[in-house]
Amino acid sequence: MTRSVQPRIRCVGGIVFDTNGRLLLVRRLNPPGEGLWSVPGGRVEPGEADDEAVRRELAEETGLSVTVDRWVGTVTRPATSGVYEIHDYLCQVESGVLRAGDDASDARWCSTAILTTLREAGQLTEGLYTALDEWGQLPRS
């Protein structure tokens, strides 16, 4: 018996904190995760390096220009035609004004209290809180 291998769809996410230790989240405008809050990010384009994809996705979804610092962790999530393999990177804001754009219906800096409220209301993407907690990347305020 042969085991079918689902195609991996490489994605990236940007974990960004402001100077007050609040975490940047966006509300997804489109599936998957439509209406749920997550870190900004998306698919890596063919021939694109992860750091390029992170900077592009953050600019498109939040209006912010970022510097990619380091890889934090990887999660997998089911996709319609395979598996999303999401590589998350810690980033620093260089410039820009926060605004929702592209695949985001809203964008905000979230304190611990706001993140907890979103989590308890079931408004975070699947596994986001657990991954951030395991990686030591929860809001610091």
Rank of each mutant, 00 (worst) to 15 (best):
V12R: 01
R10M: 06
P78V: 09
W109C: 11
E57Y: 00
T19N: 13
L25Q: 01
T117F: 12
R56F: 02
R56T: 03
L118K: 09
L128V: 10
E134L: 09
I86V: 12
E126P: 12
S38I: 01
Q92C: 13
L132Q: 04
R55N: 03
R8L: 14
E120H: 14
T130Q: 14
P7C: 08
D18N: 02
D18G: 00
G33S: 06
V39F: 02
L118Q: 04
D88F: 07
L58E: 05
E60C: 06
V16R: 01
V26C: 04
E61Y: 02
S141W: 12
G33Q: 00
C91L: 10
R140L: 10
P40R: 00
T2M: 13
V83T: 09
V83E: 10
D18F: 01
T67C: 06
T19I: 10
L118N: 06
I86P: 01
G14C: 03
A53N: 00
A53S: 07
R55P: 04
V93C: 10
G47W: 01
G96Y: 03
L29Y: 04
T80K: 15
V68F: 03
L29F: 08
G96M: 07
Q6W: 12
W37C: 00
L36Y: 05
T74S: 04
Q137M: 11
G35W: 00
N20V: 15
E45A: 14
E120Y: 12
E34Y: 05
T2A: 15
S111P: 06
V5H: 12
G122E: 11
T130P: 08
R77H: 12
W135C: 04
G63Y: 00
S111K: 09
L25I: 08
R3H: 15
G101T: 07
G73S: 00
P46D: 06
D18V: 05
L90P: 08
L124I: 07
L25Y: 05
T112E: 15
V5Q: 13
S4D: 15
L132V: 07
A59L: 12
R3K: 15
N20I: 14
S81R: 11
R10C: 07
C110M: 09
E48N: 05
W71A: 11
R108V: 13
G47H: 01
L64M: 02
D133L: 13
G122N: 08
S95G: 09
G101K: 10
L128E: 12
Q137W: 08
V12N: 00
L90E: 08
D106P: 10
N30D: 12
R3D: 14
G136K: 05
E94W: 05
R28V: 04
S65Q: 10
L25A: 03
Q6M: 14
R43F: 05
E120D: 15
Q137E: 13
L64W: 03
A49G: 07
T76K: 09
A131F: 04
A121D: 15
E34M: 08
E94C: 12
R28C: 03
Y84T: 12
G13K: 03
Q123P: 14
V5A: 15
R108F: 13
Q137H: 09
R10L: 09
V75F: 03
D133Q: 14
V68Q: 04
E85M: 07
V39M: 00
E85F: 06
R140G: 11
E45V: 07
C11P: 08
T19K: 13
L138P: 09
I15S: 02
N20G: 15
